[in-house]
Design a protein around this nucleic acid. Structure first.
Length: 426
RNA sequence: GCGGGCGUGGCGUAGUGGUUAACGCGUCUGGUUGUGGCCCAGAAGAUCGAGGGUUCGAAUCCCUCCGCUCGCCCCA
């Protein structure tokens, strides 16, 4: 007799009706800014060949190595739930010959991503990203452009206490010489560093700069900074990005310690974080340039740039800042009816209203007028239509305003749409 | 993967060894013939996260597990 009740899988919150206005606001905002910048929507599948991310995202990244949902389907193919959007969009770019479209190709998507990670505030196993990519341009202006999209989105959403952090991590080859210098710098201090950082030293030396461990902080101070050692090309690129951002009126701070976790980034990297948020998972949007990725996935050299923004985190920020979304949607008309012979009339009436574009909901015929009107009231409907056997006999319905102080009137069913419109206009 | 906090009706809480687990909100039904909001009355709804142990007696004490949550790691 004891049946176990199912629960949503760990880290996969339901988005309840009360949260939907926030989602509406964000999704509408995304639609506005992407239109404004001429980005076209693309939707790629929720799952892809696992190899796409292993190669694209990088099989030594935590995202792929420890967090990716990988499974074999019934046909024996090794698939993965997408942990991020970029490799999938690059795959689609190649698969559909977008290289022969006018370049650059500006694409965006909004879709769920999956990472097997321990859930906490602002971090979920299924989360939703707004992702923007510009493929086929090495222009620094394009880096600034994608940043501008996100910045404008957040401004439109009423989030104005965000901080844009920017840096450049150079191109892949010149970066190796810097990484060697960095390792030389840290090597003598290795035993004094945190365990995490000792691990990073071999795996991903750049992340040494990202450490928040107190034991590492004194050494970070004097470490050579990548941004001070850029190749001339990357240096020029970086200066143009900053100039473009300034021209766009977007404030930013150069963060020499900014490092991204994915393998494919080069040159421009950035993230948007809430000001004075020290939490590790604070960033609400992050991205950068990835000039080598398309080639890595078997295409021609195609310099590209883009970002991903976390919708749940963005909504969290809206709530933290008490940005109120538009009110939840409500029906305009609630149809109260009583009696078996009346039910079909209620149905046609509601249908007529909906055909006229008026949102209507029908009460439950088994309930008393009183009960149905209570429901009408709590539903937020502005007008109740009351329909009983008497009204049907007269070919009419009572139109009762619920939000303004005026009397209900009887209206002929043939003219019900006009009567309702009139009542709604009060 | 590591560390902290917390699990009592749908939600928010009270109850910290002793009769049928309490309250608020919400839900439902009524308060004469067919009319909401306010008010009043009543009802439904809890195996006190699960299992085990201690005890005459456990929501309360102990153990294990599960779940949620916050932080670290990592990332959006």
């Amino acid at each position: 007799m004891t049946t176990t009740r199912f629960q949503a899988p760990r880290g996969t919150p339901d988005v309840l009706p009360e949260m939907q206005p926030y989602w509406d606001a964000v999704l509408r905002g995304i639609s506005e800014v992407t239109d404004l910048f001429g980005f076209q929507r693309i939707d790629t599948p929720v799952f892809e060949a696992a190899g796409l991310f292993e190669k694209g995202t990088g099989d030594t990244t935590d995202v792929v190595e420890k967090e990716m949902y990988v499974f074999e389907d019934r046909g024996g193919d090794l698939l993965a739930l997408a942990p991020e959007a970029t490799p999938a969009i690059v795959r689609a770019y190649l698969e559909h010959g977008m290289g022969s479209w006018p370049q650059p190709v500006r694409l965006f998507t909004v879709k769920p991503m999956f990472r097997y990670d321990r859930p906490q505030k602002g971090r979920y196993r299924q989360f939703t990203q707004f992702d923007c990519e510009v493929l086929g341009s090495s222009d620094p202006l394009v880096d600034a452009e994608v940043i501008q999209i996100a910045w404008l989105l957040y401004a439109n959403l009423g989030l104005n206490n965000l901080e844009l952090r920017l840096s450049s991590i150079d191109d892949i080859d010149p970066r190796q010489t810097y990484v060697e210098r960095l390792k030389e710098y840290f090597r003598p201090h290795l035993s004094k560093l945190s365990e995490d950082s000792q691990r990073r030293f071999e795996r991903n030396p750049l992340r040494l700069l990202d450490s928040k461990d107190e034991r590492d902080l004194p050494f970070k101070e004097n470490a050579p900074k990548l941004i001070d050692a850029l190749s001339p090309e990357a240096q020029d690129h970086h200066e143009l990005v900053t100039a473009a951002l300034t021209a766009a009126g977007i404030p930013f701070t150069i963060d020499p310690l900014l490092v991204r976790g994915l393998d494919y980034y080069n040159r421009t990297v950035f993230e948007i974080v809430p000001q004075e948020d020290t939490r590790a998972q604070g960033s609400v949007m992050a991205g950068g340039r990835y000039d080598g990725l398309v080639e890595l996935l078997g295409g021609p050299s195609t310099p590209s740039t883009g970002f991903a923004a976390g919708i749940e985190r963005s909504i969290l920020e809206m709530q933290k800042n008490e940005v109120s979304p538009p009110f939840a949607k409500q029906v305009a008309v609630y149809v109260v009816h009583r009696g078996d012979s009346v039910a079909v009339h209620a149905m046609t009436l509601a249908t007529t209203l909906r055909q006229a574009g008026i949102a209507a909901q029908i009460g439950e015929s088994g309930r008393s007028f009183k009960a149905q009107l209570r429901r009408a009231d709590s539903s937020g409907a502005r007008v109740a239509l009351i329909l009983g056997e008497d009204e049907i006999a007269r070919g009419a319905a009572m139109v009762k305003p619920l939000r303004v102080d005026s009397e209900q009137v009887e209206a002929p069913i043939s003219g019900i749409v006009d009567a309702v419109r009139k009542a709604l206009a009060e």
